[in-house]
Design a protein around this nucleic acid. Structure first.
Length: 480
RNA sequence: GGCGCGGUAGCAAAGCGGUUAUGCAGAGGCCUGCAAAGCCUUUUAGGGCGGUUCGACUCCGCCCCGCGCCUCCA
């Protein structure tokens, strides 16, 4: 029985999908005008784990992660680069896909792009207008009227009065209320635009997600995810739009998915992942303290980055540093070392086995991946001790549920960081063949009890970061 | 100012009202020609002050500190 923390109620709740066997989930994805950074890596990995666990739990899942391919920053960047918007977004979508694949993130079922859903946005804005929740301001923008939507603030726990009291809300004459937000921006000079019933223009950011989610998953769905920072205003506004536009039929009393009292409810469970920080500060574009995924992958194996994310709870802050990545690497090496000789294809976990039961329990407890990883280490320890092959297979199978330990042990332990190995292999002084040959020489020296020579060879390789390990079965090597 | 989250050993990070978290690092031992890996043992905890309790890291209150949102942001 899965329980998950719902931002809407600020408690852990038992997960009950609207449809007993089917789950529908939407996650806010990236705005594609630049490379993804480690913060983006976290969202992708976190919800990839959620997605995998829901499927492993037997649910038939429809998972949508959108792509924002039209907004101010994209327009600005395209102009700066002197290229078309689509050339820019197409390129960075490609990079994002590469990054995601490297991190073991499976493709969502749908990756809608905002520009493909303009008609659906129009339809939703029209409904909002018909319901008296949208108005065209004198500057030509179509705005959402927050004061006419009673539930505004229910997700973020903010009241309109509190928000208005804040000093930072811009005063804007065109808006009936300073907190009203734009649904449709009327076209500015030289900017891309689409025709609409309200004139030429482009969509506001919030309506994009409401339209795409509703179009692909229906007027209501089970889970909506994203980063903590999206809670307000983005998700709050999505609720206002989607619930405001909802048809009468969808509000029927007692319907599954409706809140107590027959209140219509767009999404039942809101999940928000914590931030990646650098020196205790949020990693973000605006602070400029971000590391792109591809830069990090030059020095660290992608699976190390994945473990780094997974070994923290998804709602906790996660501090990024080389030291922490080194630490994650050592941990992963321990697991892969234990897995030497265990076949790659091990099938599904044996869910009746003790570790698997514990694994299931902690994953069902709001995706407690740190505890699930601890189960993996316990399993590795018992496997090392007992050499019971079933435990080794179980270790690989359970890790596989998290998208971990899917490779051959030696492939991981001997892998060269991209920056060193790279395309040209620059900086790499010993080829695997050369290492094998040295191992052979050393074996001969050992046989002749020439330990001095044997140790000399071992030290030589050690200086190059190559560690030799003797065992009854022979000598193997790995990178330090 | 408003709303919210958190402070656990050298580092990272969980559960739990009383019983070993886990990983990395450190110490001792076993194994080894010596190592490495592995195994065994082991040192470092719970911001501060009160309260509840037979008993609190775990519940409650206050204080201190850090972080996030309130504006684009995963």
């Amino acid at each position: 029985m899965l329980r998950l923390y719902n931002t809407l109620t600020r408690t852990k709740e038992t997960f009950v999908p609207m449809d007993p066997s089917r789950v529908r989930m939407y996650v806010c994805g990236m705005t594609v005008y630049d490379y993804c950074h480690i913060g983006h890596a976290r969202v992708m990995v976190v919800f990839d784990v959620v997605q995998r666990w829901l499927r492993a739990s037997g649910y038939q899942l429809t998972y949508v992660r959108n792509i924002t391919d039209i907004d101010d920053k994209i327009i600005k960047r395209a102009v700066e680069n002197g290229e078309s918007m689509s050339a820019l977004t197409e390129r960075f979508i490609g990079f994002m896909d590469e990054d995601a694949a490297a991190l073991g993130v499976q493709k969502p079922d749908f990756e809608p792009r905002a520009t493909g859903y303009i008609d659906d946005m129009h339809a939703m804005i029209a409904k909002l207008e018909a319901h008296g929740l949208a108005y065209k301001a004198k500057d030509g923008d179509v705005n959402f009227s927050v004061r006419r939507f009673p539930g505004y603030g229910k997700l973020s726990g903010k009241s309109l009065d509190d928000l208005r009291a804040g000093e930072r809300v811009q005063v804007d004459d065109a808006k009936q209320d300073p907190l009203d937000f734009v649904l449709w921006k009327c076209a500015k000079h030289g900017e891309p635009f689409w025709p609409s019933p309200w004139g030429n223009g482009r969509p506001g950011w919030h309506i994009e997600c409401s339209a795409m989610g509703t179009k692909l998953l229906g007027e209501r769905f089970d889970i909506h995810g994203g980063g903590m920072d999206l809670q307000f205003p983005h998700h709050e506004n999505e609720i206002a739009q989607s619930e405001g536009a909802m048809s009468e039929g969808a509000m029927s009393e007692g319907a599954v998915g409706a809140a107590p009292g027959g209140e219509k409810r767009f999404v039942n469970y809101w999940m928000h992942n914590g931030f990646v920080r650098v020196d205790e500060e949020k990693m973000s574009k605006s602070l400029g303290n971000f590391f792109t995924i591809r830069d990090v992958l030059k020095r660290y194996d992608p699976e190390v980055v994945r473990l780094f994310v997974i070994r923290a709870h998804y709602r906790s802050p996660l501090n990024y540093s080389d030291h922490h990545l080194d630490d994650a690497r050592s941990s992963l090496a321990r697991l892969y070392t234990a897995l030497k000789g265990v076949p790659l294809e091990v099938g599904a976990p044996d869910w009746n086995e003790a570790h698997a039961k514990r694994f299931r329990e902690v994953m069902d407890d709001d995706f407690n991946t740190p505890e699930a990883v601890a189960v993996l280490f316990d399993l590795a320890n018992e496997f090392n001790r007992s050499k019971d092959e079933a435990l080794g297979r179980q270790l690989r199978a359970l890790a596989g549920v998290l998208g971990l330990l899917g490779r051959d042990s030696m492939a991981f332990l001997q892998a060269v960081p991209a920056e060193v190995g790279g395309d040209a292999g620059a900086g790499e002084t010993y080829t695997p063949e050369a290492i094998q040959s040295l191992i052979k020489s050393r074996a001969a020296a050992k046989k002749g009890r020439d330990f001095k020579e044997a140790d000399r060879i071992r030290d030589e390789l050690a200086k190059a970061g190559i560690v030799l390990e003797d065992s009854p079965a022979g000598t193997t090597w790995r990178r330090a």
